[in-house]
Design a protein around this nucleic acid. Sequence first.
DNA 1: CCGATTTTTCGAACGCCGTTAGATTATCTA
DNA 2: TAGATAATCTAACGGCGTTCGAAAAATCGG
Lengths: 221, 221
Amino acid sequence: MTANDSLRRRAPASAPAKRRQAVSLLKRSLILDAARAVFESEGLEGASLRSIAKAAGYTPAALYFHFSSKEAVYAALLAESLDRLKAATEAAAAGHDDAAGAFRAAGLAFFTFYAENPGDLDLGFYLFRGGMKPQGLGRDFDPGLNGALAATLAPLGRAAGQLGADEAAGERLVAEFFAYAVGVLLLVHTRRIRMFGQDPRAMIERHLDLAVSGVRRVALG
Amino acid sequence: MTANDSLRRRAPASAPAKRRQAVSLLKRSLILDAARAVFESEGLEGASLRSIAKAAGYTPAALYFHFSSKEAVYAALLAESLDRLKAATEAAAAGHDDAAGAFRAAGLAFFTFYAENPGDLDLGFYLFRGGMKPQGLGRDFDPGLNGALAATLAPLGRAAGQLGADEAAGERLVAEFFAYAVGVLLLVHTRRIRMFGQDPRAMIERHLDLAVSGVRRVALG
DNA sequence: CCGATTTTTCGAACGCCGTTAGATTATCTA
DNA sequence: TAGATAATCTAACGGCGTTCGAAAAATCGG
């Protein structure tokens, strides 16, 4: 049981108790900051729980008071990353009052977020694909993270609906975009994109344009 | 220096020397068989060089006579996997004399190969994305493996050309397909596809159909 | 067939890793 | 201030990939 588990289930929370909780959450977030710093300098693969602990000024074992595992540290970072991504896609869609523009903008924002923040992409791939061992997130993921991921794509689904797509078609459009974006990003991420001499952003934009015009063709007859 | 390195650079190769080389290659492939068996029973993530060695009847250190690293073992398996995949896409394309049919068949064969052989997909993702540490394949891949990967897609490029696409358009079509297939396969692989309620094979077929009709539209006017 | 040489394997260790158990210190409560 | 609880530490476990140097097995020249 980690610190915040126990804090969460403490009932009335007197004023000093609240203060204690705040301190604990602060320490938790300082550990996450240290982890981010280690990721930045060593890369996600080169990071270890021990290196994160050292960067945070802790002994390795101390991290287990705040997180139940190394994976939980990563999951917390991913959750925060997905929140930022959701904000980006929401903001992009909000900047357009035409559905087609909103769809394209949200999709492009999704791609751009990861193109410009390879660290977040690392994190996403790491947990998203089951890179981690036993009963980890990999094999059945965290429902909350799954939901957070879906939320980042919600603006696309909404825009598809406004474009005239029914629910099934909207889901299909979102799935197609997501799969394609993941593929392109993986190619970029692994430097394999140069095998094909393509501009990844142009690939994404083309996909979005085709998706929009495809919906229009169906919706308008 | 591994065994086959040294054998390769031995000059005239007398008859007994050839025999020695053959024996060495056999041992090498027995180790690879053991690795495959371990992957099958433990999964690629659960496998360790030590477990592979044990399965092959070796001490861990002995593997370093035949392979320069664990990664080299994986790379050898991936090379063989890519050869089989290439055979699959080539055969699929060869079964059609119309370019559209060949393009679709090769693409579908690519997808089907990995859908039906998740172990090969594991391997591909593992080395393809830089899952491995230091100066490994991950960060700059093996040129041979890169070429072998490209070769698996060659039938698609050829068919695109026969469809009337110029070279740039052909490369773009191949890149688009590959990115999309990778994305869909990753979704399947990580069981994330059910988030979207889509049939992955249908997604691929739809993409291939749209790609073909897109080329046709351009080529025919 | 034997001794020398080379190829192949092993035993032991190194320095990492994530994680756990139990003792220990800091912090708050009463 | 005494006791409880929260937070951290020390030490260890078993595992990992890898390396080193010695042993064993196979091969070769005489």
